[in-house]
């Protein structure tokens, strides 16, 4: 990030940056022929498997993203857990 960016960084992201990030996702989705429906199903399946170990996974909170990398593409899953109560 340059001086220019940091000065204005608090404002909305520059549209070129937004475009680049959106493209980074959509291109990999296209390449792997991953549809939004398949992503939804994948989240349900992930939650189902994880439920064997972690009962506190909410499938609606999961975010699944395909990312382009230098050598490999990556599947990134962000899986928030409902915090276990402290008196456990």
């Amino acid at each position: 990030m340059g001086f220019f960016d940091s000065m204005f960084g608090r404002r909305r992201d520059r549209s070129a940056q937004v475009a680049k990030e959106r493209l980074a996702t959509v291109l990999v989705d296209d390449r792997y022929k991953l549809t939004p429906e398949m992503k939804e199903q994948m989240k349900l399946d992930i939650a189902e498997v994880l439920a064997r170990y972690l009962p506190s996974v909410d499938p609606d909170q999961i975010e699944v993203t395909l990312m382009r990398g230098e050598a490999n593409d990556h599947l990134k899953a962000d899986i928030p857990l409902r915090r276990a109560s402290s008196d456990m």
């Binding site: 520059r14 549209s15 070129a16 475009a19 680049k20 493209l23 291109l27 382009r68």
Partner: peptide, 17 residues
């Protein structure tokens, strides 16, 4: 001009993608 304002994808961005 748009590229330098960060409001258009640069050639580098397109190449990277």
């Amino acid at each position: 001009r748009l590229v330098s304002r960060g409001e258009m994808l640069s050639v580098e961005d397109v190449l990277e993608l």
